[in-house]
Design a protein around this nucleic acid. Sequence first.
DNA 1: GCAAAAGTGTTCAGGGTACACCCATGT
DNA 2: ACATGGGTGTACCCTGAACACTTTTGC
Lengths: 225, 225
Amino acid sequence: MKKEINKKYKFAVIAVDVVILTIKDDKLSALLMPMQKEPYLNYWAVLGGLIKPNESVNEAAKRYLFEKTGLKNVYLEQLYAFGEVGRDPFGRVVSVVYFVLIPHENFRLKISKKIKRVKWFSVDSLPPLAYDHGQIIKTAAERLQAKLSYTNIIYGLLPEKFTLGELQKSYEIILKKKLDKRNFRKKLMSLNIIKSAAGQKRGEAHRPAQLFSFVSKKPQVVEIL
Amino acid sequence: MKKEINKKYKFAVIAVDVVILTIKDDKLSALLMPMQKEPYLNYWAVLGGLIKPNESVNEAAKRYLFEKTGLKNVYLEQLYAFGEVGRDPFGRVVSVVYFVLIPHENFRLKISKKIKRVKWFSVDSLPPLAYDHGQIIKTAAERLQAKLSYTNIIYGLLPEKFTLGELQKSYEIILKKKLDKRNFRKKLMSLNIIKSAAGQKRGEAHRPAQLFSFVSKKPQVVEIL
DNA sequence: GCAAAAGTGTTCAGGGTACACCCATGT
DNA sequence: ACATGGGTGTACCCTGAACACTTTTGC
C-alpha cells in the first residue's frame, strides 16, 4: 500500500503508528511485526497505517489497534508527530505516533490474519527496525518512564486485581531501580489510588498476597515517587 | 490558499500551527492575527500554514515562525497533533501544533507585510477564534504551566538579564498563585540554574535589584516548585 | 525444613513552609 | 516623607530514606 505513495501524492500523507507496551518476563516490551517488503524485508515494525479521509487521527489509531490486535479500551496516548523528510523511503509520510499500555497477564490478542506474526521484544534489546521505529519506541519508553513518577498510569500495565508486590515490581522494571518495600507500600496506601480487593493470590511457594485494584482508571497527576 | 484543499486532496494535508506565548502586562498572552476570509472573517488565529513536500514538520514550524514574525532561536516545542475530521471547514487538515516562548521586553517582531496586523491577547480572555484554535491555545497554556514546575523552561520567557522579582512574578502569573519571596529565592539559588550577572536594575521608585541570568538555556528537568 | 515473597514501624535528616523587618531608591 | 519592591534568617513540620524481622505458604 505504501508503495504507491510517491506516485500518487506530491504532498505528505498522514499515518498513525501505535507502540504497544507491556511488561513481559520482567521487561518492558513492545509488540512488533515483521515487514514483508523491501527495503525493510525482515526488519521489524510497530503497528500502523495511513489514516482515512473521514476519520480523525485518534480514531485511526484506535481502528488500527482494534483491527490488527483486537485491543480496545486500553490506555492510549498520543506520543509525538514524527515528520522528518526522509523517514519513509516510499514517500513523504508524517506519522502521528501513539502508545498503548496493556497488562500482559491473561491478555489474548486477536491478531489479524493479514499479519504473519507478531513478537514481543524487550525495549532494551530490539531487533533491526524499519523506518525510524527505533527512535519511536525509545521516545515511547521515555515518556512512559517519566509519567510513571507523577501520574497513576501504571494502571494501564496491570490486571484488574494485583498484589502490591506486582505493582512494585512494575515500577522497578520501568524506572530501572529497586524500591524499598515498606516505603513503597506506605506511599501508595497514602495516595488513595488503590484499594483493597477481595481475595488473595495463592499457589506460589510463599505466603499468599492480598489483592488490590485501582480506585480509578482515569489518568491523574499524582506525585508517586 | 487553504481554499483549494478539498478540490486537490482527497486525503488529509498537513499543516503546522505555532502558538507564540509571552508575558505581557502581567498576563500570559498569545500572539494572534485576524483571519481575512469567510467563514472565519474577523476571527483570530494563531500563526500557521501547510508544510512543503521537502521540509520536515519541525522545519515548517520554524520557517513560518521566521517568515511571519522574524523570530529565530527561541524556545520551541511540539505540543500536539490535532486531527479531528471537521476542524477545518475548507478540507481535511491535520495540524501539528508547536508553541514558542519569547521574552516580551525588548522584543521587536518583524511582522511579514502579508499579515495585516497582529495583537497580543491574554490567554484568559481570548477573542472569537478560528478553527479549534481555542482548544490549541488552552492546551499550550496547560502544557506550559505543567512544565514550569518541573523544568527550567521559564528561561524562554525572560530576557538575557532579569531580576529575581521578575522571575518570581513570571512564575506567579503562569501558576496563578503567590509565592513566598524568601523561600523562592532560597530554592532557586540552591538549584544552580541561575547565576548572578553584572549590573543592577535601576530607575524605578525603589531599591535597585541585582541582575541574574540563566546558567543554561537548554531544557532541563529540575524540580522547581 | 527450606526457600521465597508477604507483611509490618521507627528513626533520622533534609526540604518545604510560614513568617517580619530594614534597605535603597524615585517622586 | 512616603511608597515601592529589594533583600535577608529562623523555627517547625512533614515527607523521604534507611533499615530487619516474623509470617505463611509450596515443595
